[in-house]
Amino acid sequence: MSGGTVAEPVRDPGLQPERTRLAWRRTTLSGAAAAVLGMKTALHGGVSVAGTVACALCFALWLAFLLLAHRRIRALASTAEPAALTPRHATATALLTVALAVCAAALVF
């Protein structure tokens, strides 16, 4: 652990930060797929006010997810040995997923 100089940070041979970054990307992509399905459901059978609101909500949830992922990816890239994910960050991402499911349940009914 004597490496990590300012000029040339030691690169993790297991590429753990990179793998974690890609995991965030994959998860954002999965979220996009779910959100697009939600927007399709919302606008199915003609445009209505409720449908448009639900569609916007799905998109907003995905945008929030993208923002959280972006912040975490920036944190991962900033140092050679990034700090662990904070519980608040993890909870926020999980709650966004739950919100999407609640939105879905409202749409299905």
Binding site: W24, R26, T27, L37, A104
Partner: peptide, 15 residues
């Protein structure tokens, strides 16, 4: 994150 993707896949399956 892998579990979260599983959750998102289940939600997508519901849709």
């Amino acid at each position: 994150l892998a579990w979260l993707r599983t959750a998102l896949a289940l939600i997508g399956g519901g849709f």
